[in-house]
Simulated scan of single mutants.
Amino acid sequence: MPRSSVSKLLQDLEQHLGTKLVERSTRALTITPEGEAYRDLALGLLADLDAMDAAAGQARSSPRGRLRVDVGSSLANLVIIYLGEGGLDVGRWSTELHGDPAARR
């Protein structure tokens, strides 16, 4: 972003707030105490937004619900072993495993 655009946005923000955020000289910009307080609050808000995005993204990427598996008894044993070894993240799943009723006879 061009320096002139940043300068204009900063001036607009200062006008909106009714206070100076930086002191300008021909050689430097110095942040005012009001500018420091505003920056600190803005950084806190940005951190909160990042946390909100991360939480929402995690909720979308983590499957949840009920997992019901109907399989024959020999395959059921493999599924039980797989789940027991952590092969599937079941933290948000409730699981039901049903073997083939015909195989139980």
Results as ranks from 00 to 15, higher is better:
1 M>H: 06
2 P>C: 01
2 P>T: 05
3 R>F: 05
3 R>G: 02
4 S>A: 13
4 S>F: 05
7 S>L: 04
7 S>D: 07
8 K>Q: 13
10 L>P: 05
10 L>S: 08
11 Q>W: 02
12 D>K: 14
13 L>C: 07
13 L>P: 02
14 E>G: 12
14 E>R: 13
14 E>F: 12
15 Q>C: 02
15 Q>L: 14
16 H>P: 02
17 L>D: 03
17 L>E: 14
17 L>R: 15
18 G>C: 05
18 G>V: 04
19 T>K: 12
20 K>L: 15
21 L>R: 08
22 V>K: 09
23 E>R: 13
25 S>I: 05
26 T>L: 13
26 T>D: 14
26 T>K: 15
27 R>Q: 08
27 R>G: 02
28 A>V: 09
28 A>H: 11
35 G>P: 10
35 G>D: 06
35 G>K: 10
35 G>S: 13
36 E>F: 08
36 E>Y: 06
36 E>K: 15
38 Y>R: 11
39 R>K: 15
39 R>H: 13
39 R>C: 06
40 D>N: 12
40 D>Y: 07
45 L>S: 06
45 L>T: 08
45 L>Y: 14
46 L>W: 02
47 A>W: 06
48 D>V: 03
52 M>H: 12
53 D>K: 15
54 A>D: 10
54 A>Y: 04
55 A>H: 09
56 A>E: 12
56 A>C: 06
57 G>K: 13
58 Q>N: 13
58 Q>L: 09
59 A>H: 10
59 A>M: 13
60 R>P: 01
62 S>E: 15
62 S>M: 06
62 S>Y: 02
64 R>N: 03
66 R>F: 02
68 R>G: 07
69 V>K: 09
69 V>L: 15
70 D>T: 08
70 D>S: 14
70 D>L: 15
70 D>V: 11
72 G>Y: 04
72 G>S: 08
73 S>F: 03
75 L>C: 01
75 L>Y: 03
75 L>A: 14
76 A>E: 11
78 L>K: 05
80 I>Q: 09
80 I>N: 08
82 Y>G: 03
82 Y>K: 05
84 G>W: 02
86 G>D: 05
87 G>A: 03
89 D>R: 04
89 D>F: 00
90 V>S: 01
91 G>W: 00
91 G>C: 05
91 G>V: 01
95 T>V: 15
95 T>C: 09
97 L>C: 04
97 L>A: 04
99 G>W: 04
99 G>C: 10
100 D>A: 10
101 P>C: 03
101 P>T: 02
103 A>E: 09
104 R>E: 08
105 R>I: 00
105 R>G: 07
